[in-house]
Design a protein around this nucleic acid. Sequence first.
DNA 1: CGCCGTCTTGACGGGAGTCAATTATGGTGG
DNA 2: CCACCATAATTGACTCCCGTCAAGACGGCG
Lengths: 263, 263
Amino acid sequence: MGSSKTDNVVSIKSRQVSCKDCRLRKFCLAADLNVKELGMFEGITQHRRSLERGARVFHIGDRFNTLYTVRTGSLKTYTLTPDGREKIIGFYLPGDLIGLDAMGSGIHGSSAEVLETTTLCAIPFNRMSSIQSKSLQQRLLNLASEQIQTRDRHITLLGKERADQRLASFLVHLADRFKALGYSAKQFNLSMSRADIGNYLNLAIETVSRVFAKLRSSGLINVDRRQLRINNLEKLRCLAAAEIPKDIRIIWPGTNLNRHSQY
Amino acid sequence: MGSSKTDNVVSIKSRQVSCKDCRLRKFCLAADLNVKELGMFEGITQHRRSLERGARVFHIGDRFNTLYTVRTGSLKTYTLTPDGREKIIGFYLPGDLIGLDAMGSGIHGSSAEVLETTTLCAIPFNRMSSIQSKSLQQRLLNLASEQIQTRDRHITLLGKERADQRLASFLVHLADRFKALGYSAKQFNLSMSRADIGNYLNLAIETVSRVFAKLRSSGLINVDRRQLRINNLEKLRCLAAAEIPKDIRIIWPGTNLNRHSQY
DNA sequence: CGCCGTCTTGACGGGAGTCAATTATGGTGG
DNA sequence: CCACCATAATTGACTCCCGTCAAGACGGCG
């Protein structure tokens, strides 16, 4: 079925929040626009009906023509491995822009799938380009650049060798993002499954489950299904960062560096 | 010292190849420029003296002001982990553009270090922006987008569970890039150390060495120090894709052949 | 030749993957 | 309301790939 869900877009202007008043504007493409530019931008942006869990926004191989900003909800993007399994690249929250990776080739190299009931703003790329706005061009470039840095941080995260560090980093990063959005950093729910988390972090689903259990029993977090509460964000952050450099072993030979029970 | 190496840039116009005749132009920012634009672009681009192995082009935390295109040689970029070790994000070959990740924040989030004697073209970002060229803007955006896709492929590569798949993927990717540059895909030398490769692929240096040995003993490649010869690129590609060619067997030491060594 | 950094090779143990069984949850229909 | 099932998640047992430690080989260079 491909990207059939992009068909029959119904603009629900009556219920839409105008870009001018949108509290997510500072995150999105329209961040730096003046009033006139904002009007033009709003004119081409389509506020789409909500999508249900599992719906695909675009798929690998689809022709690129639209950028999307998450308004509410969340989604994941993934590529396909040569043997046909999905590899999750990122999770996207309100304010995030998706589709940037396809501008270069004109073909989507990843798929985007909704994790929960989600609403998006759709921004036709051609029409957007026709808005001759220096601010908009600049903003687009900056967002692309930021996404490169985001990828770099993800790659760095995947370099952490131990499973608890990777999961802790993931949770801390989520907490920071929710905080930046004005939500609670300590309490939120995970819209992605354990399988998604494991896929994202290169961990088996059982390992994710076990690390959750360990973090819970150590008191750092509470988890019940998708509900997460972080009891000690700072210690979690330390765990995420704490890798024991090899030199420390040389400095304190024979020390029992029990790496698991310190938190 | 920071980015002191960017000081005292000496333009060696006398020996420089003009952008117009540069065989790497189709890869670089100047790809789509018309004659007039090309002249302006060439006017602001500085062709820098060669850098020696270990030289840093920019460092994490440096203020961003210049994009660089690799003319000859190669380099690596890396971030720092929270505990201060480097995590290699990518290797860059002639034609590649570096620095794009810093446009958004204005601060470099990664460092770039030369792996061998290398020459760069330096493109001051402000002056480039002052060239009001639609083609140039577009090209910049496309390259940023492509780098996002490159990162996504790298993340996908890191998701491969077995060490030989990751290393094979790495070698195949290198081969493809050399071929695209007009060099031999079958024979080239690795400008990066085993430690760099391991860091890039999330493998211990010993594992890299062992997998090289296995690939050599299975006849897929020849390696002597940094010299690499690929004897069977297609089978290497299959291994990278986790598709197992029937007539190749790689015997792992201390492993019974039950499970994975059927190839 | 001795020093040093890079790389290789061997031995060993552990963290996490795999397999499997159990529980919890949610949706559906009788 | 409960039986029924599918999916998600947990937990246990076991295996094994690869990281770690250690020693040695191989240049390159003064």
